[in-house]
Amino acid sequence: MVLLLAGGRGFTRRDGLRRLKERIENIPGATNVRYEPSRLRPRTVVADIDVEMYLGDAFPRQTATLEVLWRPHEGKDVQRVQWADEAVSLGWHKDDDHPDLGTTHFQLEASGEVVHEPGQIEVEAPLGFLEVCLDRLPDALRATSES
């Protein structure tokens, strides 16, 4: 009776995370792409990133992790695309933490400070959302090395 009990969203989630993992495996510089907490029960996809290989350019920081959470939910999915290296943690979050900033907010933590801004992403499909974030990520990272 699990189908009636839980609505089957967990299986939608496993399917979506599989596609997200395939996409992340194609990111330049991404290695050790894995599910957390486990392959059988994935909640997020995590990758180690060689930053200069990813950016195709010199950068002051060498390694990072990229973590993508996706949790389908009736009404509004939760999705977070989060980059973390030795100096900054930044990402785009579609969740209920800052409804005043719109459907999605951008969060930047650096030097002990946290900044939240409107994320302005209206895309629903998890791969489409990730692609917008990947499109913006290089500029967001370069901005953190200039300040």
């Binding site: 979506g16 194609n26 389908p72 499909a125």
Partner: peptide, 24 residues
């Protein structure tokens, strides 16, 4: 960003399939 961006390697059929199979 209301216009979706998709990985280059995904064709129309794969995009429709992904959108449809991730609906709640």
């Amino acid at each position: 960003e209301k216009e979706p961006i998709w990985p280059d390697e995904m064709d129309a059929g794969e995009r429709v399939r992904h959108v449809a199979l991730t609906r709640t």
